[in-house]
Simulated scan of single mutants.
Amino acid sequence: MELERTRVDVVQCAKTYADGTRGLQPTDLTVEPGEVMALLGPSGCGKTTLLRLIAGLEAPDAGSRIAFGNTDVTHMPIEQRGVGMVFQHYALFPQMTVESNIGYGLKIRGVAESERRRTVGELVDLVRLGGLEKKRPAELSGGQRQRVALARAVAARPRVLLLDEPLTALDAKLKESLRDELADLLRRLHITAIHVTHDQQEALAIADRLAVMHAGRIVQVGDGEALYRTPSHPFVATFLGRVNRIVPAVDPSAARGLPHLTALQVCDALSASADALLVRPEDVEVGPTLPDWGSAAVTRRSFLGDRVQLTLAVSGHAPLLADVHRDHPAREGERVGFRIATHRLLSVTESLSA
């Protein structure tokens, strides 16, 4: 089944509600044809507002522009935009069979039965639901219901597929298996998709690129690895994974000229100092108490399956988190050495609350 690959352009798009609340600051975003873009951020960051504006479920502020390919859809109603939507709870019709659910949109559009059957058959094969056509949603697994919802959303060949936190209601184990399945399905559909989530692992697993949102604006766009390794905004660094915030004993610019940091100054957790640096727990090296290493006491050892997280008490500094190999010998109450490779440091150039 061939689906259109549509470029989406969001230009200076903003949303102010009737009570004066700004749900979305003026925002620019481009989604390339056939790309899966995740809108990622905490509750209230504006990601759902942006999705609803793209869908046509909300009207943007004056001066906003949204285009699908060469078509300006800014003021076009949702039914004319050519969008397919997948919701949190899939919204399947419980009394209908799989094939009836998938073909429902085509039926209400007046598509001929022969064409409807052909399209539904193609989609059943594409999302691997063969043999389940006569089943009802209650007889399906979570993954199978997800595939029905996706097939229904793309049956009418939408220009853009929109997914509104489709895995939120699932337990952790099921979510992990279904996010991989969803990623595979989207690749096989070859459709432009915009996926809203607050789950970092879900976004990293599913999307080609991520737009990280904070306080009503997009703060950085990029692929998952680039955002994790080279965040340009402190919120991105803290939201994607965990970080330690440190103030080096030397000037930050001079600190980068050293191979390692081993001594740390007092760090005021409430400070918005631009002299602070961030380092991820996996980049804190823990070993024996050597003369040229910093010294710390292990106050907590947490076994996390694939790794061990150590909480280190460092004189004159906030507790430092370090992720080490799961067989690392350090135990609570012991003293260890630590050091931080300066090329792993992430600079903080803006307030963490920005």
Rank of each mutant, 00 (worst) to 15 (best):
V8H: 00
V10I: 15
V10N: 02
C13W: 02
L29E: 11
V31Y: 07
E32Q: 15
G34P: 11
G46Q: 03
T48M: 06
T48Q: 05
L51I: 09
L51Q: 01
I54S: 02
A55E: 04
G56L: 07
A59V: 14
A59Y: 05
P60N: 03
I66M: 04
F68N: 03
D72Y: 10
T74W: 04
M76C: 12
G82N: 02
M85D: 03
F87E: 01
P94D: 01
M96W: 10
S100E: 15
N101A: 10
V111A: 07
A112V: 13
A112G: 14
T119I: 15
G121P: 03
E122I: 11
V124D: 02
G130M: 02
E133P: 06
A138V: 12
G143V: 07
Q146F: 10
R152F: 09
A153I: 09
A153F: 05
A156W: 01
R159I: 08
R159S: 05
L161W: 06
L163P: 03
T168H: 05
L170K: 01
K173Y: 06
K173W: 03
S177D: 11
L182G: 07
A183T: 05
R187M: 11
L189H: 01
L189T: 06
I194F: 08
T197V: 10
Q201K: 13
Q201Y: 10
E202H: 11
L227K: 06
H233E: 09
A237L: 11
T238I: 05
F239M: 08
F239W: 06
G241S: 11
R242E: 15
V243C: 14
R245C: 12
V247N: 08
P248D: 00
D251R: 09
S253Y: 13
A254T: 15
L261R: 00
Q265T: 13
D268S: 09
L270C: 01
L277P: 01
L278F: 15
V279T: 09
P288V: 12
L290I: 12
L290T: 13
W293C: 09
A296W: 05
A296T: 01
V298W: 07
F303D: 04
F303P: 02
F303M: 07
L310M: 04
L310E: 01
L310I: 09
S315I: 04
H317V: 07
L321T: 00
V324L: 09
H325W: 09
R326F: 13
H328Q: 06
E332T: 14
R335A: 06
V336F: 12
G337M: 04
A341L: 07
V348K: 00
